[in-house]
Each structure stands twice: as structure tokens, then as C-alpha cells.
């Protein structure tokens, strides 16, 4: 078994990626397709995908393929872009949570904020001053997930080398993939996974969006790192 990932992209996350200037995250223009593959351009590609789409996507995640110590294929968090519903100037985002659940989510956010800031940020309440919506929580929890040997919606797309497009809460709820069912519980109506050479691009939306080849083609162009 390989001790190291066998086909990590040429330049995956490195210590130099963090911290980075916030301005970089605000960039609107997609990087040239020929731009080097790193976490920075990956995020820009995800952002370009969401902001350039006619449909209203809530988030995009790149699941990066690698191998674990036993040689099993793993899709793990590569990068993600979350578009807050509140930024769209639309209706108040859906939250189905109890006060206890909200307090729990805020506590987790506060703890994570302290952890990455490396200091006591208990006075820094801005990060928890708004309720943590269901889709924000789903996105955050996604950062902890991996999909081994074709498991989950992303793993299915990667192993079959075909996009998986699940539209409609009923279809999500009836899916054999736990991630799809979980997405439905957290208010998603559409989940899509498009395989690429080095992983899978996943998009989710709280709206019902039916399959278009346009989106799939865009993913394939934006995430074609071999060219």
C-alpha cells in the first residue's frame, strides 16, 4: 500500500496557503483554465461556477481523490465555497432547529473560531451573532467527511465516472446515500456530483434544479487540471 497519496494534484494545500489575505477570497473572475492547481485557484473555480450559473446554488465543494495508508481510494475535502442565502437578498434562510440545537451550533462555531485563531476569542461574538442555518451547518459538517471506496454521493460519481444529479426532496430522502438524505434534512432540494480527473465537484441548492449539460460541461472545463 502506498504511504502517500498516489495521485494528489500537483500542488495541494500547503502550509503557505494559510493564512491568506481575505481579498483573495473575494475574487470574482475565474482563473484561466491553464492556471496552476492549488487551493487558491480551486476556490476561485468553485466561486466562478456558482456565481456564473443561472441557477441558484448554495455551495460547491471539491472532493479531492487520494489513497489512504491501506491503499483504499478516498475522497476528502479539497476546498469549498458557500454562498449565503442572506447575500442573495432573498427570503430568510430556513432553520428548523430548536433553541438548544442553535446554542450547540454556535458553541461549535465559537470553539472552532478559537481553535483556528489560536487564541481566546470568547469576546469575538460576531461569528455567532446570527443563527447558524441548516445549510451552513451542512457545509461545515462536510469539512469533517471522507468517502472511502465509492461511498456516498461523491464516491458514486467518481467510481462510475458519471455525474450524479438528484433533484427533489423526495428523491434525496429516498437515496441510498446517507449524504443525500442528510442534505434533504438540512433543506437541500438538489444535489449534484460531477467527477473530474482528480476528484469530484459537488453542488447543492435549496431550490429544485433539473439536470443541464451546461453545468456538467462547465465543471469539466474549469476542473480539467490535466490540460
Amino acid at each position: 500500500p502506498a504511504a502517500q497519496p498516489l495521485h494528489q494534484p500537483q500542488s495541494s494545500a500547503s502550509t503557505s496557503d494559510y493564512p491568506r489575505p481575505p481579498a483573495a477570497a473575494q475574487s470574482q473572475a475565474p482563473p484561466p483554465v491553464s492556471a496552476p492547481f492549488n487551493q487558491e485557484t480551486l476556490m476561485q473555480r468553485l466561486q466562478a461556477l456558482i456565481e456564473g450559473a443561472r441557477e441558484s446554488w448554495t455551495y460547491a465543494i471539491f472532493w479531492q481523490s487520494s489513497y489512504d495508508m491501506s491503499g483504499a481510494s478516498v475522497l476528502g475535502w479539497g476546498e469549498g465555497f458557500y454562498k449565503d442565502e442572506r447575500d442573495k437578498g432573498k427570503v430568510k434562510p430556513k432553520t428548523t432547529t430548536s433553541l438548544v440545537e442553535q446554542e450547540y451550533r454556535k458553541k461549535v462555531l465559537r470553539d472552532l473560531n478559537s481553535l483556528i485563531s489560536g487564541a481566546d476569542t470568547s469576546a469575538d461574538d460576531a461569528v455567532v451573532d446570527q443563527e447558524v442555518t441548516d445549510t451552513e451547518w451542512f457545509f461545515l459538517v462536510s469539512m469533517t467527511q471522507n468517502f472511502v471506496n465509492g461511498g456516498g454521493l461523491p464516491g458514486q460519481a467518481f467510481f462510475q465516472s458519471n455525474p450524479v444529479w438528484v433533484a427533489g426532496p423526495d428523491r434525496l430522502a429516498a437515496s441510498s446515500c446517507e449524504r443525500a438524505r442528510q442534505g434533504q434534512v438540512f433543506g437541500l432540494q438538489t444535489m449534484v456530483c460531477v467527477p473530474t480527473a482528480n476528484g469530484v465537484v459537488e453542488l447543492g441548492s435549496t431550490e429544485l434544479i433539473f439536470q443541464t449539460s451546461d453545468l456538467v460541461n462547465k465543471v469539466r472545463v474549469l476542473f480539467d487540471f490535466n490540460n
Binding site: S12, A13, S14, T15, D17, Y18, P19, R20, P22, A25, Q39, M43, Q64, G76, W77, G78, E79, G80, Y82, D84, R86, D87, L109, L112, N113, L115, I116, D124, A126, V127, D129, Q130, E136, F139, L140, M143, T144
Partner: peptide, 26 residues
């Protein structure tokens, strides 16, 4: 708990930063 992989750490920092910014500007 402190061993957050680098890619996830950067994503998390960005997510929390954007959220904080939005709250402050709202």
C-alpha cells in the same frame, strides 16, 4: 482536536471570516 488538516483549516478560516464580516456589516 487541534490537528485540523491544512486544506480544511483554510476553508474553515475563510468560512468563519466571511460569516463574521457579514454579521458586522449587517
Amino acid at each position: 482536536h487541534t490537528a485540523i488538516p491544512q486544506a480544511r483549516k483554510a476553508s474553515l478560516a475563510r468560512f468563519l471570516g466571511k460569516r463574521k464580516e457579514r454579521v458586522i456589516n449587517s
